[in-house]
């Protein structure tokens, strides 16, 4: 049940954000999309999440024609760089949201939703903060809520858009370790956008180096470092 991205293209007005991006990753892998600003990594991530529409190309995952499905059916949990928490809802409300909007026949009972929220709060180490509002939390705490919220829907795929970009170095380092641990526990295929090499190499099973809308090389962190296939990759990684 691997993730297959095949020649995805996307133009914004005249600007080609994605120029035939292709990638294959096994189920449960932690994939980092690494590259400079403007390389198309966030666009690709948003297309995977259903927040943008590709102009051409295909994506197959879990035996589904991924791009044919609207965002809300994909069960692709998305973690935004600026958290995008629902500001007027409590932490518990935010986490429960994905379960509460399910159609009636799929929706768990209220008690069950509450139980899952508690479970997730414990998982992200925010046990007693359920009744707080996002504005009362620190950046690191907010991002953990965002992750719990994405995990609540039992996603097929987890998509993270530079999730630690807005946080300070110390918090960032802590959360890296912690996120990888969560990923291992949940076993869900994850795609993670970053421009930080250290972060990508530390966390990912597979690193996809992007440049000008194309994926120049995909491989394990060691392979990509040892054996850069293009001039861009070797320059980018030696920087």
């Amino acid at each position: 049940m691997s993730l297959v991205i095949d020649s995805v293209c996307k133009k914004f007005q005249r600007f080609p954000a994605l120029n035939g991006a292709s990638l294959t990753a096994p189920q449960g892998a932690f994939v980092a999309l690494l590259g400079p600003s403007g390389s198309g990594k966030t666009t690709l991530l948003r297309i995977l999440g259903g927040l943008e529409q590709a102009d051409s190309g295909a994506v197959r995952f879990a035996d589904l024609n991924w791009l044919d499905m609207p965002a809300r059916q994909r069960k692709a949990g998305f973690v935004f760089q600026q958290y995008a928490l629902f500001r007027h809802m409590t932490v518990a409300g935010n986490i429960a949201f994905g379960l509460e909007v399910r159609p009636r026949n799929e929706r768990p009972a209220r008690a069950e939703i509450q139980r899952r929220v508690e479970e997730l709060l414990e998982l992200v180490q925010l046990k007693d903060l359920g009744k707080r509002y996002p504005s009362q939390l620190s950046g690191g705490q907010r991002q953990r809520v965002a992750l719990a919220r994405a995990l609540a829907i039992e996603p097929r795929m987890l998509l993270l858009d530079e999730p630690f970009g807005a946080l300070d170095t110390k918090v960032r380092k802590e959360l890296r370790v912690w996120l990888r641990h969560i990923h291992d526990k949940a076993g869900v295929t994850s795609v993670f956008v970053t421009h930080d090499q250290e972060e990508a190499f530390e966390m990912a099973d597979l690193v996809a180096v992007m440049n000008k809308g194309r994926i120049e090389q995909v491989g394990t962190p060691q392979d990509v470092r040892r054996d850069p296939r293009t001039a861009f990759v070797s320059e980018f990684l030696s920087a």
Partner: peptide
């Protein structure tokens, strides 16, 4: 649009997003 996008990825329909996310804000 961030919150609305988040709601969509979490499975909310357009109407649910409007009622639960946009309107309260």
């Amino acid at each position: 649009r961030d919150e609305e996008e988040a709601a969509a990825t979490l499975g909310a329909s357009g109407f649910q997003t409007f009622l639960r996310v946009t309107l309260p804000n």
